[in-house]
Design a protein around this nucleic acid. Structure first.
Length: 313
DNA sequence: AAAAGCCGCAACCGCCGGGTT
DNA sequence: CAACCCGGCGGTTGCGGCTTT
C-alpha cells in the first residue's frame, strides 16, 4: 500500500502564510507545545497541511531564530562544516542554533557556493584558501590535496555517522570546556520577524518572555543539551562528532553564538540517541598521520582548514 | 518609466527512518 | 513481521522584490 498523503489534499491551502494564520499557529503551540503536528490543522482550524504547519513553525515562527544577513564568522563556520559534513544542513544548523537548516541551505545555495566557486577559479591563479602558508606547494598540488582531504574527511564522517551505538571508550562531548555556552537566553527581538508579520510580534513577545523564563529555570544549558525546534535534543553529540577541538583547531575562532534561546522544552520530548561511537576528528587525525607525515598533530590539523586570516570574501 | 532579468527566500515535494499497532 | 503513521531532512520550485537595461 502506498503511503497516504500527510493530509487531505482537498481544501488545503498553500502559499505564503498570513499573519492571522501565524497567530493561530503560535497560539496553538503556545498552549500545546510543538509536536503532534498531525492534529494541528484539526485543532486550530487552519486549512494547512500538518507538514506546512511544522515547517512554518520551525523555519519562521519559533523563537530564537536569528534573521538577517549572515556574519563572516557564521559563513566561515558553514563553509567549514559543509566541507566536513556535506549537505547535512540539519547537522550544520545544530552548530548555529539561531539559524534554521533552511536558512543555512538557502544561504549556501545562493551565496556561499558562488563565493567558493569564484575562489576556486581566481583570475590570477593564486587561491590561498586552505592550507596555511607553511605548506608551500603549488596550486595544483594544493587543490588536489584539498580535494582529497575533503573527500577523506567526508568519508570518515560518513562512516562515523553511520555507526549507531556509542562506545564508552570514545570521548564524547561534555557540557563544559570550550563548548558553546548557551546559558544566556536571548530576549525576543521583534525585528527578528519579517516586516509582514510585525503585527503579531507583540503577541509573540509576551509568550516568548514567558517561555524564556521557563527556559532560564533550566539554565546552564549547553549546546550538548540544547533543544531543537521540534523539542528533540540536538547538538554536536547528535552527529557523533566531537567538534569541540575542531572549532579551536580548525576554525581558529570561538563561536560568536554565545547565547541560545532554549525557549521550548516540551514535556515528553525525547533525547535522540547518540549516533556515533567514534570521533571523526580523531579519525581524520589518524588518517592525516597515516599520510606519511604530510600533516601531523593538532597543530597541523588547523592547516586542514581555511586560514582564518585569509580574506575569504 | 517600463520591461526584462536576476536574486533571495519561503514554502513545497518526495523520500526516508523510527515508532506504533 | 508487515502495514501504517508521523516527523525529519534535503532538493527544488516559484513568487515577490530589486536591479539592470
Amino acid at each position: 500500500m502506498g503511503r497516504p498523503p500527510c493530509c487531505d489534499k482537498v481544501g488545503v491551502k498553500k502559499g505564503p502564510w498570513t499573519p492571522e494564520e501565524d497567530i493561530m499557529l503560535v497560539s496553538y503551540v503556545q498552549e500545546h507545545g510543538p509536536g503532534n503536528w498531525r492534529s494541528v490543522p484539526t485543532n486550530t482550524g487552519l486549512r494547512r497541511c500538518s507538514k506546512s504547519c511544522r515547517l512554518r513553525w520551525t523555519n519562521y515562527l519559533r523563537p530564537g531564530i536569528k534573521r538577517g544577513s549572515f556574519t563572516e564568522d557564521e559563513e566561515k563556520m558553514i563553509i567549514q562544516l559543509q566541507a566536513l559534513l556535506g549537505n547535512k544542513w540539519a547537522a550544520i544548523a545544530s552548530y548555529l542554533p539561531e539559524r534554521t537548516d533552511n536558512d543555512i541551505k538557502n544561504h549556501w545555495n545562493t551565496h556561499l557556493k558562488k563565493k567558493l566557486k569564484k575562489l576556486q577559479e581566481p583570475p590570477n591563479g593564486h587561491s590561498m584558501v586552505g592550507f596555511s602558508s607553511a605548506h608551500t606547494i603549488s596550486r595544483g598540488q594544493w587543490e588536489k590535496r584539498l580535494q582529497t582531504d575533503i573527500n577523506k574527511a567526508k568519508q570518515a564522517l560518513h562512516e562515523a555517522l553511520s555507526l549507531e551505538k556509542p562506545s564508552p571508550n570514545v570521548p564524547q562531548l561534555k557540557p563544559s570546556n570550550g563548548y558553546y555556552s548557551f546559558t544566556e537566553l536571548k530576549p525576543y527581538n521583534g525585528s527578528a520577524y519579517a516586516l509582514s508579520t510585525e503585527n503579531i510580534a507583540r503577541l509573540l513577545k509576551g509568550w516568548v518572555t514567558n517561555s524564556t523564563k521557563q527556559a532560564q529555570e533550566n539554565s546552564s544549558t549547553t549546546l550538548n543539551d540544547s533543544v531543537s525546534s521540534e523539542g528533540t535534543q540536538i547538538g554536536p553529540k547528535q552527529c557523533g562528532v566531537d567538534l569541540s577541538e575542531a572549532f579551536e583547531s580548525l576554525f581558529g575562532f570561538e563561536s560568536s553564538n554565545s547565547d541560545f534561546s532554549q525557549s521550548m522544552s516540551p514535556e515528553g520530548s525525547e533525547r535522540k540517541p547518540d549516533v556515533g561511537n567514534q570521533n571523526p576528528l580523531s579519525m581524520l587525525e589518524d588518517w592525516l598521520l597515516d599520510e606519511g607525515g604530510v600533516v601531523q598533530g593538532k597543530e597541523d590539523l588547523a592547516n586542514f582548514s581555511f586560514d582564518e586570516d585569509v580574506e575569504l570574501f
